[in-house]
Design a binder for these strands. Structure first.
Lengths: 128, 128
DNA sequence: AATTTATTCAACCATATGGTTGAGGGTTTT
DNA sequence: AAAACCCTCAACCATATGGTTGAATAAATT
């Protein structure tokens, strides 16, 4: 959620911040669901929701900012479409940990017993 | 991010709101990363971060609220551990769409061309 | 018993978020 | 040219968020 630090290039962390934030709202997830079916204009996308067109427009901006959607201006309309890659990034991040429990259950015991507050545990933190 | 409507039982939407929101912060994702390695006390988890213990405690509360972590009080410490299920829910949600592009590329053209602003497209919205 | 350690609670602050309304700015349609 | 349409921008509002500091609670150490 933070602004970019010095460079204008968003870090991986910042990108993930944006994607997960974008997905943290039911309305926006619903929009993503619809866009997975077909592209849509702003007003078409707004139609099912009980809120102003402007509110939906803002939600679309959040999704766009997170690189989850693209817009193509067609006449006076702006057609939104889903983009795959960032969703894939979010997926990958989560996948690191779900597979951890899912398949590699052998590691589970270690996980349940050790804790890195213990002096016995080497306490490396390598983020992402 | 909304409060529960009438019942105190969080809906699936509300749960996803909480999980994705919890994951939308770099600090919190970092904490999840660490907890995937081993359980940890609040102060042990806080140690790598350049912020007050209280701030980390709040982050942990957000993760706990999203059911991403559990706490076990051990003496005067509270040991946090990761929970798998909710991460799995988030994963599943994303997975709906990543597989859509990933494997089922046959549907992609339809996706790129149609738009449900068209009167030709039946406009069903079934959330989740 | 007193002190230190581990953690939470409460109040506060600045900024972000999600919604609103109203005013444009281009495009089509008439 | 005028009107209707699609959409964004700007201002505003209430609440949420992420951080701070300081006090309070509870367990462990001295």
């Amino acid at each position: 959620m933070k602004k970019s630090n010095t460079a204008m290039v968003p870090s991986k962390d910042e990108k993930l911040d944006l994607v997960f934030h974008a997905l943290s709202d039911t309305t926006r997830r619903s929009i993503v669901s619809r866009l997975a079916e077909a592209n849509g204009t702003v007003s078409a996308l707004a139609e099912p929701f009980d809120m102003s067109l402007n509110a939906v427009s803002k939600h679309l901006k959040v999704l766009e900012n997170a690189k989850l959607i693209d817009r193509e201006i067609v006449g006076r309309t702006s057609v939104c479409s889903l983009k795959a890659d960032v969703l894939h990034d979010a997926m990958s991040w989560i996948d690191q940990y779900t597979t951890f429990w899912g398949e590699a259950l052998d590691g589970l015991e270690r996980h349940m017993e050790n804790q890195f507050g213990d002096p016995t545990h080497s306490n490396k933190l390598e983020e992402n």
